[in-house]
Amino acid sequence: MKILVCLKQVPHQDARLDIDGAGTWIKEDGIKFEINSYDTFALEEALRIKDAGEAEVVVVSIGPDRVTQALRTALGMGADRAIHVKDAEIDGSDTLGIAKVLAAVAKEESPDLVLMGLMSDDGNASAVPPMMAELMGVPSATAVMKATPEGDGYRCERELEGGALEVVDLAKPCLIAVQSGLNQVRYASLKGIMAAKKKPMDTKSAGDLGLSGVVGAAGAKAQIEKIYAPVRGEGAEIIEGSTDEVVTQLVGKIKELGLL
């Protein structure tokens, strides 16, 4: 059994974010990064499967040198080896480009199961998991709250709107994108962290994966046009008074605008 866990390194939730000079991303210098919170639940799920039986857990992440820290943390928590995809050519990829890179890694690794977070804390696109599954040609489920082995695959409970759950069965190999909170993520032990530096970490380029010229800004169908903080508008009206008064006035305004 081999499990591939896809991790994204994102700015730390407490990091102070400033927009860069080009206005298309944030200034990354001097800020702290961490593993995308959704992906930590995916990693924990993989490590639980490993703890329960025979499984090799391989973690993969795309990005510059700083990404090795996320991978080492995953190794410290118990993953067996890591793949770092590092190539400036990949910079500027859209979600499809990222999915192509991850699918190419999956093709080389042939995992029985791919685990990843439902979305990333910074991009919030939720696009990479289903795209990757399509490119791999395997079944997938997103927003998974629970995954249990069932026959030759997994029975997944997906979170739907309104608190409802949908049950889907996936045959292996498959891809599961987890919702946050499906488990309690473990800590890397000090011994685990010490052992992590001796575990293998391979570095791959776009060329190694047969993707030269295919990914990156040039191949992207979607490009970030601009990032900006919401502009304080002039048309805001502050409703004051007691709670009852505010609610009554607010409902009146909504009705007035024909929204109810």
């Binding site: 090795t68 820290q69 943390t73 410290g76 000090l190 962290i193």
Partner: peptide
């Protein structure tokens, strides 16, 4: 070192 920062992050999360 990177390893020290990993220890720090893990302990900080626990705290």
């Amino acid at each position: 070192s990177e390893q020290h920062e990993m220890i720090r992050d893990a302990v900080r999360r626990f705290i």
